[in-house]
Amino acid sequence: MSAPPPGLAAVEAGFAARARLRLVEPALALVAVACFFAFPDRHLLMAEIAVLALFALSLDLILGYAGIVSLGHAAFLGLGAYAAGIVAVRVTPDPLLGLAAAGIVGGLAGLATSPLVLRGADLTRLMVTLGVALVMGEIANRESWLTGGADGLQGIAMGPVLGFEFDIVGRVANAYALAVLVVLALLARLVVLSPFRASLVAIRDNPLRARAVGIPVNRRLVAIYGLSAAYAGVAGGLLCQTTQFVSLDVFGFERSADVLLVLVIGGTGWLYGGLVGAVLFKLLVDALSSLTPQYWHFWIGLILVVLVLVGRDRMRDGARRLVGRLGPPRTAP
C-alpha cells in the first residue's frame, strides 16, 4: 500500500487480486473434513474448537481490523446463547431459526452498545466492554423466569438440522458447527478483503487522518462493531445448540479473556488467526488438563509467556514464509 496512488482501475484490480481464493484456503477446509473422519471420538472437542474459532474471528473483526479492544466480548456470545436457548425452549426447536435469532439479537445488542464503545480511548473501551458483559450477566441472573437464573436454562431439546438428529457422539453437532464456521468465515473473507476493510485499517492506524480524507469514521466503526457482535451471537447460538445447555458462565470474564488469548496465540488482523489460535489453545488445554487436572493452569501460563516473549514472532514469520509460498491472502498491512 506504500506505492504511489495508482489509477482507479489498478486499485480495483488490486482488490480483485486479493479476493481470489488462494490454494491454502480449500486446503484448510480439506484438513477440517479430514479431521472429521480421522478422529471419530473427538467430535465434541472439534465442535468446541469451531465455536471458539468463530468467536475469535468475531473479536478479530473489531480488534484486528478496527483496533477496538474489548474485555467483554462474551456479552454478545452470552446473548446469542440465551437467544438460541430461549427460542428452542419457547418457540421452535429448529436449529437454523435459533441460530438466526442468536445472530440478530447479538447484532442488535452490538449496535445498541456501540455508542458507548465509540467514545474514549483503549482503556475506556476495556472498562466499558467489561461493564456491558457484567451487566448482561447480572440481568440474566435476575430474570430467572426467562433464563433459569443460576441453575442454567433447562429443557433445551434441539430438533434435527436439515434432517439430521443431534447424536450423542457429536457427529452432527460437529458437522453443523464446522459448516457454520466455514460459511461465516467465507462471508468475513468478503468483508476483510473489501475496500471497507481498507477504510477500517485507516481508522485503526490514524483516526484523525481517516476523518480528514473523508472516511465516515463513526459509521464504519458502528457497522463493524455490529457485525462482530452478530458473529459472536451466532457463536453463542452454536455453543448453546451443540451442548444443548446455557448457564450464566457464558457471560463470564474468563470467556472474554480466553478469546483474547486465542487471538494472542493465533495473531490478530488476519482471517485465520482466530482459527489457528482456537485449534492450538483448545488442544493445549485439553492435553494439559488431561495430564494434570489440578495444575494445568500453571503450564498454560508458562507456555503463553514463552510464546509471547520468545517464539511468537519467529514462529509466525516461519509460518508466513511457509504459507507465503502457497499464496495466502495477506490482509495485514
Binding site: 471420538d41 473427538r42 465434541l44 472437542l45 451442548t243
Partner: peptide, 10 residues
C-alpha cells in the same frame, strides 16, 4: 457447564 457436558459425553 458446557465443559462438564462435553467431558461427560466423552
Amino acid at each position: 457447564a458446557d465443559v462438564t457436558k462435553r467431558l461427560a459425553q466423552e
